[in-house]
Design a protein around this nucleic acid. Structure first.
Lengths: 174, 174
DNA sequence: TGAGATCAGTCAACAAGGCTGACATAATTC
DNA sequence: GAATTATGTCAGCCTTGTTGACTGATCTCA
């Protein structure tokens, strides 16, 4: 547990040592992920709790908004949970009238999921909270920092699914 | 579909527009947090599952390693869970001989928690996995990106607890 | 010294949201 | 026509969070 000698955060950004990363620097990165993610999910969690929903509902709503007309299989692929687990969430959202499902045109077995107006409203409320936090962080840190944030998080994603994930994240239309 | 520094996602890194952040850019940041955190926790989760532990055990072990001799109240403060919830985890870890607790010297009501050799071993295994992932990401992204990553995540943390969290993250000794 | 606060531990009950396994139905594909 | 696929559902289990109530040991302060 040796100290990175001088004060503050200076020890971490050393453009002169591209490959030398101390355990201490890495540990700081790990803890930052933990604390930042905890607060990152905090705002929506509070709104969701009022309605008896949780983070799982938020994730479903987010990606339905993102790709309207997505199938159940598509959601399962993105969320990486079991269909039983997703089904419980989807049933609640359907019963509550937040999501709609239409029969697929090409493959009539498929359900094409979309948000109802009520679902859109909740999604807007949730994403506004989360965007506000990210916007404040991005503004405070500055554009170069944002580019770095993006680069590191991208590299943090499992290599074997990275391209697929990044094309989902970056794609503007389904 | 490219990495930020190159030409691809031009819309995102615009050093010329410090304050203009589109909803699309913010949404990408939100999704990156989701996907990166999911994979970030994946490696340790697998090791923990073999032993019948979960992420909660990992968090406790991590912060005991980080601040040996920490009290229960100290852990509660960091982890922000209820004492009943923490107690369940601590009891398992104690029963399994991974953590030790000594009576406080100054205040004998307190328990000073440390890792046993077995606990140290598990901690080392878990943190090695997580450090490897962070190290690879940091190396691939480069030192400037790492600085940006840190800056953004720091700003992502709730403002009212930010200083406390950051001094915990950056502090070298308890 | 005695009252009250604090630290730790525990019991009980509950909920969210993961998981596995088994099975059903409809529609598509071969 | 048989096999496969997409979806839905039942039942049961686990982890990990919650609230509320209560105990015992110890410390603090009037």
């Amino acid at each position: 547990m040796q100290a990175p000698p001088a004060g503050g955060t200076k020890s971490v950004s050393r453009p002169d040592q591209l490959l030398f990363l101390t355990d201490e620097q890495l540990r700081q990165g790990i803890e930052l992920m933990f604390f930042a993610y905890r607060d990152f999910t905090g705002d929506p969690d509070a709104v969701l709790a009022e309605r008896g929903y949780g983070r799982a509902h938020h994730r479903a709503i987010h990606f339905i908004k993102r790709r309207p007309g997505i199938t159940i299989a598509g959601l399962l692929d993105i969320l990486q949970v079991t269909k039983q687990s997703l089904n419980r969430v989807m049933r609640q959202l359907t019963d509550d009238g937040l999501v709609l499902s239409a029969q697929g045109q090409i493959d009539r077995r498929q359900r094409l999921i979309t948000l109802s107006p009520a679902g859109e409203a909740l999604e807007a409320e949730l994403s506004a909270l989360q965007r506000d936090r990210v916007r404040r962080a991005f503004r405070a840190a500055g554009p170069d920092a944002v580019a770095g944030f993006r680069a590191v998080l991208e590299q943090m994603i499992n290599e074997d699914g990275r391209d697929a994930v990044m094309s989902l994240v970056e794609r503007d239309k389904p």
